[in-house]
């Protein structure tokens, strides 16, 4: 698997993502003064906000090398999405240190910033700029994006007339054309019909060949096994396994069985 892209992006396989003892907690409120009125009433009554801190991630140490495709698996609420959000700075860590080198593309949802009243074409520019693609780049890739979306003439119609499948295709066509070094992808690959999915996965393969680093959250274990060069397993906010995808997936199945039994 050695090609030019890899060699360019991987001088001796340097770490592009480094997390050292990272922890993240969420504050879950039982009672909160969500408006000024209650704040004043509660202040007068001497009531305080009541909350509990829940650790979503605990003491995560992880480094990812350039060109790796990392699969992140675990049960719901194990901290997978939190991990991605920390890497792209949507969330701030409470403890520990995170270093990310390179341009990051965050693909946590499709079609950020879409406006139903506007045409597909205009929404491409909106969405692209949010994902970090400049207007100039977006214009250069416009034909490619439109043809990938398979929308044809519909591209000039307001997207409120689109079916949900068409919206997904448009969102994905933009996302897949974002230029970056590191891609953080959360479960958005499970979209469209089988044929379109295959087309998307082909593009992910192409990114891998060009030496991009990818971190992928998915419940689709088969896909993790097929695509990732490495996988980690999160359980209740802790990193419990790290290694080859098949080994980590086996571990995951074992944990699930023992939990069930």
């Amino acid at each position: 698997m050695s090609n030019e892209g890899r060699q360019r992006n991987e001088p001796g396989g340097s770490d592009v993502i480094q997390m050292r003892s990272v922890s993240k907690k969420y504050r879950v409120y039982y009672e909160k003064s969500e408006n000024i009125k209650y704040l004043i009433i509660n202040l007068l009554k001497g009531k305080r906000d009541r909350y509990r801190d829940v650790w979503a991630l605990r003491d995560i140490t992880l480094s990812v090398k350039a060109g790796e495709t990392l699969g992140i698996i675990g049960e719901n609420g194990s901290g997978k999405s939190t991990l991605l959000k920390l890497l792209c700075r949507i969330l701030l860590a409470d403890e520990g240190h995170i270093e990310v080198n390179g341009k990051v593309a965050t693909l946590l949802e499709l079609g950020s910033g879409f406006s139903m009243e506007l045409s597909g074409r205009k929404n491409i520019f909106m969405n692209a700029s949010i994902l970090g693609l400049s207007r100039k780049e977006a214009r250069r890739r416009l034909d490619e994006i439109i043809s990938f979306s398979e929308l044809g003439d519909f591209i000039n119609a307001p997207i409120k007339s689109y079916s949900s499948g068409m919206l997904v295709r448009l969102g994905f066509a933009v996302a897949i054309n974002v230029e970056a070094d590191i891609f953080l992808i959360d479960e958005i690959l499970a979209v469209g019909d089988e044929r379109f999915q295959r087309k998307c996965l082909d593009r992910i393969r192409a990114m891998q060949r060009r030496g991009k680093t990818i971190a992928l959250v998915s419940h689709n274990l088969e896909m993790i096994q097929k695509f990732c060069s490495r996988a980690i397993l999160l359980s209740k906010g802790r990193l419990v396994a790290d290694g080859r995808p098949d080994a980590v997936i086996d571990e995951y199945r074992r944990v699930q069985r023992s939990d069930a039994g």
């Binding site: 910033g113 406006s115 009243e117 506007l118 205009k122 520019f125 909106m126 700029s129 949010i130 400049s134 207007r135």
Partner: peptide
């Protein structure tokens, strides 16, 4: 650096309003 997002949001607001 992200001024394009701001401008796009502005355009979106205005276009939707005056469409």
């Amino acid at each position: 650096l992200r001024r394009e997002v701001l401008l796009n949001l502005v355009m979106r607001d205005l276009e939707v309003k005056y469409k």
